Simulated scan of single mutants.
Amino acid sequence: MSVIWYECKVKYRKTHETGEQKVTTDTYLLDAVSYTEAESRITEEMKAYTNEDFRIMNIKVANFSEVHPFENSDRWFKSKVSLVALDEESGKERKTNIYLLVQANDVKEAFENTTKAMESTMGDYSIPAITESPILDVFPYFTGEEEQLEKFGVVENAEASEEMNVEGEI
């Protein structure tokens, strides 16, 4: 069973650095097996963020194939990756687009992190677009340390920061 990611928009009163309180709508990403579980999980996660009342404004299925967090990064970027394959019947190249959510500090770093995430890919690919995502935080489902390692494949990258490749089977 593949991981299904849900984008959840939540409206709540947020205290800014200046001490001023404003009502904002923020977007969060989490994995769940259904809309009902997504609603339950975002409710639990938001209780940790705010003591104020909040409203879940929208929940929708996100089209991310993989999510790649990187340490020391504070923003999320949506990377469009075109996988190139040769159609044996027609002899023409076929492109299939997938979308990755990659954590980085800017677009250049998002491109580099997308390239790192695609290192194990055997086929050809290109990265035609990278855009900043409105997603503030990602809440993957973890049941425990051992299961986390088995299910999500924690890998050390060259800078000795942990990269979690959140894809595949659960």
Rank of each mutant, 00 (worst) to 15 (best):
Y6K: 02
E7Q: 11
E7W: 00
C8Q: 01
C8Y: 00
C8V: 09
C8F: 01
C8D: 00
K9W: 08
K9P: 01
Y12C: 00
R13T: 04
K14R: 10
T15H: 13
H16E: 14
T18I: 08
Q21Y: 07
V23D: 06
T25C: 08
D26N: 15
T27A: 04
V33L: 06
T36F: 10
T36L: 03
E39A: 09
R41I: 02
I42Q: 00
E45T: 02
K47N: 14
Y49Q: 10
N51E: 13
F54V: 02
F54Q: 02
V61E: 15
A62H: 07
N63A: 05
F64S: 03
H68F: 13
H68M: 14
F70M: 03
N72Q: 11
S73L: 03
R75A: 07
W76G: 02
F77R: 06
L86V: 11
E88N: 05
K92E: 15
E93T: 13
I98Q: 03
V102F: 00
V102L: 00
N105T: 09
N105K: 10
K108Q: 10
K116C: 06
M118I: 05
S120R: 13
S120W: 12
S120Q: 12
M122I: 13
M122C: 06
S126G: 13
A129R: 14
I130P: 00
I130R: 01
T131I: 13
E132P: 02
I135Y: 01
D137W: 14
F139V: 02
F142A: 04
T143N: 11
T143M: 11
E146W: 14
Q148I: 03
Q148V: 07
K151I: 05
F152V: 07
F152D: 06
G153W: 05
V154P: 07
E156M: 12
E156K: 12
E156L: 15
N157C: 10
A158P: 10
A160N: 11
A160M: 05
S161Q: 09
S161K: 07
E162I: 06
E163S: 07
M164W: 12
N165R: 15
N165T: 12
G168D: 04
I170H: 11
